[in-house]
Computed example of a mutant assay.
Amino acid sequence: MSYHHLALAAKDMAGIHAFYEGIMGFELVKVEIAPVMGGGWGKHFFYRMDGDDSKFIAFWELNDTPGQDEYAYDLNEAAKTPQGTNHYSFSVDSPQDLENWRKKWNAAGLDVLEIDHNWCHSVYTRDPNGNMIEYCLTTGSFTEDDRKRALAALDEQEMNASPPPAKMKQWLASEYQG
């Protein structure tokens, strides 16, 4: 089973569109416009990912909704959690794909964080709502020992840290050479 779509509110729909279609390459294919529960109305924009008509990321442009001046669009700001805790991740198929996304984001003026987590390798940036997004390549496999460690961690009350990342690098857009 996979998901159909992730839906998020948009602070600036024009900025969201420029980012998700212009930079990410997701195609805007549908909008639903309707009243919103609790009052007001919204436009629900659906962006098709990878040309697949069963996988979307969607954004709400909310209008005339109660309290909309107080909305927090960054998931971590809204939840009052540390930056990067709540984020969304898309998969890539190769190390070259990961490098291509890093370069594309830097060329678009976005800072990028790269982390080799020892079992997956990731690049991260932020969207116009301030949310962290990730492209991730699984580079390892999972063993029964990995499962046992994960199950044991469910009951642990003190930090028993995982090995540190094999690599961590900040790629600043201001230093990007193309």
Rank of each mutant, 00 (worst) to 15 (best):
A79K: 02
A79P: 03
A79L: 08
A79F: 11
K80N: 15
K80T: 12
K80H: 15
K80E: 12
T81L: 10
T81V: 06
P82N: 02
P82E: 00
P82R: 07
Q83P: 15
G84Q: 01
G84E: 04
G84R: 00
T85I: 09
T85M: 13
T85N: 09
T85R: 09
T85D: 04
T85G: 02
N86W: 13
N86V: 14
N86R: 10
N86E: 12
H87F: 07
H87P: 05
H87S: 01
H87L: 05
Y88L: 15
Y88S: 11
Y88D: 07
Y88M: 13
S89A: 15
S89E: 11
F90C: 12
F90M: 13
S91W: 11
S91Y: 08
S91P: 08
S91E: 13
S91N: 13
S91F: 07
V92L: 00
V92W: 00
D93N: 13
S94N: 03
S94K: 02
S94M: 07
S94I: 04
S94V: 01
P95D: 07
P95H: 00
P95F: 00
Q96F: 03
Q96H: 07
Q96S: 11
Q96T: 08
L98S: 01
L98T: 02
L98W: 03
L98E: 01
E99L: 14
N100Q: 13
N100A: 14
W101N: 01
W101Y: 11
W101M: 10
W101G: 04
R102L: 11
R102E: 05
K103H: 15
K103L: 12
K103Q: 15
K104D: 14
K104Y: 02
K104L: 12
W105K: 00
W105T: 02
N106H: 04
N106V: 06
N106T: 08
N106Y: 01
N106G: 10
N106Q: 14
N106I: 04
A107I: 03
A107T: 01
A107D: 09
A108V: 03
A108I: 07
G109A: 03
G109W: 00
G109V: 00
G109Q: 01
G109Y: 00
L110Q: 13
L110W: 13
L110F: 14
L110K: 14
L110M: 12
V112R: 02
V112G: 04
V112Q: 05
V112A: 06
V112L: 06
V112S: 07
